[in-house]
Design a protein around this nucleic acid. Structure first.
Length: 266
DNA sequence: AGTACCACCTGACGGC
DNA sequence: TGCCGTCAGGTGGTAC
């Protein structure tokens, strides 16, 4: 789930429910999701502080604390945030929980524990150290084209390479390529300026739409406009644009879904 | 530089 | 009903 739009939803959720609340305690149920620090260290960094603002870069969410340091959150494949009140049961798979002074709680929930919770002294330094490309929602068309210029290899691989461009994963890259009419295996170098422009505009529109629909909670597929691949992203399903058959292929272990008619191979 | 494969985890689903 | 293999939206390391 958690690609750029989903993480943006989590960011807004955190803003709406956990900002400016004094952190009274920290409970780590699974050490494994802590990144390079112990539960005690995390506790010392967070206790007595409050979250002043949030930032997102690609799939990373940064909760900036009132001392300028930040809590870093990455959601892996199954992570999300959940706020709940005193007396309510902890959500299943709650791995790290912040207990606020007002009696509410913020849980980092992550079934498969591929996500990571960490702490960084400085948000900018954290982003730089992660070796992430520009955020897919923030860069402009010129920057996007520059990024891909001279790049070898396949377009889907490029779009999902976080060091090149941060935020897109398997699902959204499929959706964007589908709507742009580009086959996932298309060599980047074979794309014309016009194709790159279409790709950029499509990327922006897809991300915008999915953010607006609150990707990350509930059934996004059921809320998307007609013509989106996501609700039909299954081998043998019918293409929402041409009625043809959706196919899949493997690219380095990941499954890519596409419509052979709408996305002809070059 | 780019790609393939494995590993890290848990759970859901389909086949038998 | 139960067991088993397979697969799932992320990423890092390693080997070609």
């Amino acid at each position: 789930m958690p690609e750029l739009p989903d993480v943006e939803t989590f960011r807004r959720y955190l803003d709406a429910h956990a900002l400016h609340k004094r952190i009274a305690g920290v409970h780590v149920a699974a050490d494994r999701v802590l990144r390079d620090l112990s539960p005690g260290q995390l506790e010392r960094h967070l206790e007595g502080r409050e979250i002043s603002s949030t930032r997102r870069h690609g799939k990373h969410l940064l909760a900036v604390l009132d001392d300028g340091t930040c809590l870093t959150l990455h959601f892996g494949m199954t992570g999300h945030l959940q706020v709940f009140a005193d007396g309510e049961a902890d959500p299943r798979h709650d791995r790290v929980r912040l207990d606020f002074e007002d009696g509410s709680h913020l849980a980092f929930v992550d079934q498969r524990m591929f996500g990571e919770v960490g702490w960084a002294g400085n948000a900018d330094a954290f982003v730089a150290a992660e070796d992430l490309g520009p955020d897919a929602m923030s860069l402009d068309q010129v920057a996007f084209c520059k990024l891909l210029a001279g790049r070898r290899g396949r377009i889907k691989t490029a779009l999902t390479d976080q060091t090149l461009l941060a935020g897109l994963g398997n699902i959204y890259s499929d959706e964007i390529l589908f709507q742009a009419g580009i086959h996932p295996k298309t060599p980047v170098e074979s794309l014309k300026a016009e194709d790159l422009a279409t790709l950029y505009r499509t990327m922006h529109a897809v991300l915008r739409t999915c953010i607006d629909e609150g990707a990350g909670y509930g059934d996004l597929a059921g809320r998307l406009p007609a013509g989106y691949l996501l609700p039909h992203r299954k081998e043998g399903a019918s293409c929402p644009r041409c009625g043809g058959t959706i196919r899949s292929l493997k690219m380095s272990g990941r499954t890519a879904y596409y419509c052979p008619t709408c996305q002809p191979e070059a």
